[in-house]
Design a protein around this nucleic acid. Structure first.
Lengths: 133, 133
DNA sequence: CTTGGTGTACTAGTACGAATAGTACACCAA
DNA sequence: TTGGTGTACTATTCGTACTAGTACACCAAG
């Protein structure tokens, strides 16, 4: 499977499934038109209840990450422009501000933070590149 | 006050108090040795129960953001090196990776993301500078 | 038309955390 | 002693996550 879930973590299990699949798609591990496992099948693999997986799939469909065709299955959606784009950018900005706050308490300078950011982004690009040849 | 809380948001109220105070300290709005309001006083101002504020103060003390002196009050702590530093950097890295994922769905390039990051960091530095003259 | 595999929609129940409310207590300075 | 502090405890309400089980609607293939 493309990700792991851990019921002991504070983040809800269904959210971990959502995040895991979103990350796999963004990385290119899953490509548009790829088929995802059935809710009961993925639930079996991950030792979860099928309702938990179904909740994750519904959230992913709401975010237009996947497309559901009743009676056929679920598929990775083609990239599309999102209606709530600006709203989501505001949330990203909030997250970045929190990173600045956290850096303060770790006694990192702004340059330290920028370097960390660039390093991780390059690592991300490399990972993505490996799946997009 | 240095921040706001909104019970309608999904993030717990006590966590909003924690984040708000941490941000005010990081920005220089609150400086080491500054005194914070008493739990019941802040609870009154924010329309919260005093137990909620107490929980926030306990969390802040655990993170060494403030110092509590029983019978006297709570004060902003002097900056100190934290024991769980590396653990917290791992969490920051996780957050940054999630930003990369989110950027993918917003059809932002890596350069777009880096620019956003730099812009917000500069804004943060400006805000901080205003309080540290 | 039937079958089997899909996602979906319910209900019921358990568990946990957040938050409020109220009370009592321990500490310390004036 | 007094008054202000943080702390500890119980009880209660509320919402969410999760499991479990069942039933249903849809669609392709036989």
């Amino acid at each position: 499977m493309w990700f792991r879930v851990d019921p002991r973590l504070p983040t809800p299990v269904y959210q971990q499934v959502v995040d895991g699949i979103k990350e796999a798609v963004a990385k290119g591990l899953l490509k548009p038109r790829d088929r995802l496992p059935a809710v009961r099948e993925l639930a079996m693999l991950m030792m979860l209840n099928h309702n938990t997986v179904a909740k994750a799939y519904q959230e992913l469909e709401r975010e237009r990450v996947i497309e559901v065709i009743r009676g056929r299955g679920t598929y990775v959606a083609a990239p599309s422009l999102l209606a709530n784009r600006s709203e989501r950018i505001v949330k990203m900005s909030e997250t970045i501000k929190q990173l600045c706050v956290e850096a303060y308490y770790l006694q990192m300078t702004e340059d330290d933070l920028l370097t960390l950011f660039q390093d991780l982004m390059n690592e991300w690009k490399r990972e993505k590149g490996r799946n997009n040849t």
